[in-house]
Design a protein around this nucleic acid. Structure first.
Lengths: 343, 343
DNA sequence: ATGAAAGCGCTAACAA
DNA sequence: TTGTTAGCGCTTTCAT
């Protein structure tokens, strides 16, 4: 409850005016070195801390950015946030995090909460459920800089930082082919989610590039959940001519598949190969360990934050630069796809 | 860039004054129902959104709370944050999250950043490294309500919401005893961290209650990391008379232990039993699956947030209620400790 | 029941 | 180089 020191407290102390003190603290060019010096000393002595709220009200900048993530339970997103914070912190910017839990409504509410908090910009990874994008368009119209990361959407003209999902899927599938698997299935995610669609395309392209037929019956219309993976296992093995490997759209579904296949008594990777996507933390610890595609999460967060901060800085310059940063997927091949070396 | 509607915009529209509009919007008792009605309508029609920054400056409340967590990579904390947000959201309060990454310095900087952002209160889970607590005492002195969750510290008089670590450790150890294990080791964490100390005490108490000798050589001075668990495996098995089970202070060390023991060719749970603590997400997916103690994470977050908000509301009432909420640990016994049923 | 006026703490235009 | 003045948008006395 100690009364906080304000600019005018310092001003009074030094027989200056609040404006001068403010300028000195903000390193304004035309303040004498001597004044700056004494102001800085007084500020330190009196434990002055700038009131960001007052500053924000006046300057119109809150020095906060918002982040909307589908879930804190995938440590993929935790990792991206880590990257975001590392950039924000160096610039004295706070990060407001909101979870959508993959729900459209919570995403909309999150956008409103962040705008109510007057954040200077928002980083978004779109929820699985979302098919209407007007809440993003509205925010843009109000002049709030937006950047998508991982889960983006075209045709909105909103900058994004993503991994090359097509290429990642291509590499994952090709790895299975190189390991000698011949009937390679795919657990697909909701196709309105761009990353899921791109991964299906990458899978198909890898088959074609390697002269393997694409069989629609080998694509399971699944989801990015463990449950979907389990269901896929049942489906694949009930086929008259079952696959001997699968590329899953995401690690949780890959995990469900792995468990399902194991429970059916098939050897992994000997009789069935699996590659997932996202390189979730648990992948190292399953048995067999799970091959996956790393998405350079920390870098993704850094790039997204840098891009957003740049957009915020350039605001009003009429730039509207619609950048699209595409990161390289990094394959992490572990036991689950290593037939050549393990069986 | 659309110019935002303000109170006076609405006032002008209705031939009222900003003060009246403000009161109407805040449901002030002595504003005529009729006026309230028309103000509400106009506000909606003009897409009015209260400027929280101005409101904060005037009222001295930022309607934001801060959370400091050691790491987003343990989904234990992700889950607690989920609970926190669920409470905060219903009250229109934003949550600022900062990671300490278990580092003292980042924790101190985090506290400063949150205070600079003028949060109304802070929830803290103390970093592993922290042994000096003056940054918390300072914040308290400045009148910032504080609540610890999970990682707390006595002798500071700061309210906390924790799980009964002693009891959890007792139950975990006793479970191993009941399953027929007789030489039960413990991977201990840094003893200056209260939860680690309490768990060691609980372990010792369970041995005593069951008339088993406490052997100091069976306590490995470890850490809450996978690496420590691996080292413990090596240490335990190098003993002249090795243990046949272990209770690990935390799931990551339990995981390291599990991997180490498996690599040495011992059967789990047949030849070696393991119980961890925290019920991390991966525990379900290891093989064998990992027994653990659940800490009611979401509830913990809700309780902590409710307590903090209560403290904020009561501020000035000279209450200084130093609550301490202790949640019940929930054992989750899986394969890794199930000798009786599995071998 | 409503208006008038002041002020939260800071910053920015304009003066000097 | 520094001071003066005004105002960001809201809330809150005090007055009517």
């Amino acid at each position: 409850m100690a009364p906080r020191t304000t600019l005018s407290c310092i001003a009074k102390e030094l027989n200056l005016t609040a404006a001068t003190v403010s300028r000195a603290l903000n390193d304004h060019p035309k303040i004498s070195a001597h004044t700056k010096e004494s102001v800085l000393q007084a500020a330190k002595r009196m434990h002055y801390k700038k009131n960001r709220i007052a500053s924000s009200l006046r300057s119109g900048k809150s020095h906060m950015i918002g982040v909307i993530i589908p879930s804190t339970q995938m440590n993929f997103f935790g990792s991206v946030v880590h990257g975001i914070e590392s950039i924000a912190n160096t610039r004295g910017i706070n990060v407001l995090i909101v979870q959508s839990n993959e729900h459209y409504l919570q995403e909309v509410q999150g956008m409103e909460a962040l705008q109510a908090a007057r954040v200077d910009g928002i980083l978004v990874s779109i929820a699985k459920e979302t098919v209407d994008f007007s809440h993003f368009r509205d925010a843009e119209k109000r002049g709030i800089p937006l950047v998508f990361f991982d889960r983006s959407h075209d045709n909105l003209g909103i900058p994004s930082v993503v991994v090359d999902d097509y290429k990642g899927a291509f590499l994952a599938t090709e790895n299975l082919i190189r390991q000698g698997y011949r009937r390679i299935a795919h657990i697909a995610g909701p196709q309105h989610v761009k990353v899921c669609h791109d991964r299906l395309m990458g899978y198909m392209a890898a088959l074609q590039a390697n002269h393997l037929p694409f069989e629609p019956s080998l694509v399971f219309a699944g989801d990015i959940t463990l449950e979907a993976g389990r269901q896929a296992a049942g489906y694949f093995m009930s086929l008259p001519h079952p696959p001997d490997a699968a590329f899953a759209v995401e690690d949780f579904s890959a995990l469900g598949l792995l468990k399902g296949i194991k429970e059916m008594g098939l050897a992994i990777p000997g009789e069935f190969g699996i590659v997932g996507f996202a390189n979730e933390g648990f992948g190292e610890h399953t048995s067999p360990s799970l091959s996956s595609i790393d998405q350079q999460t920390v870098l993704m967060g850094k790039e997204a934050a840098s891009l957003l901060l740049q957009l915020i800085d350039e605001q009003g310059n009429g730039h509207k630069a619609s950048a699209r940063i595409v990161l390289d997927p990094l394959p992490v091949y572990r036991e689950s796809s290593g037939r050549k070396y393990n069986s």
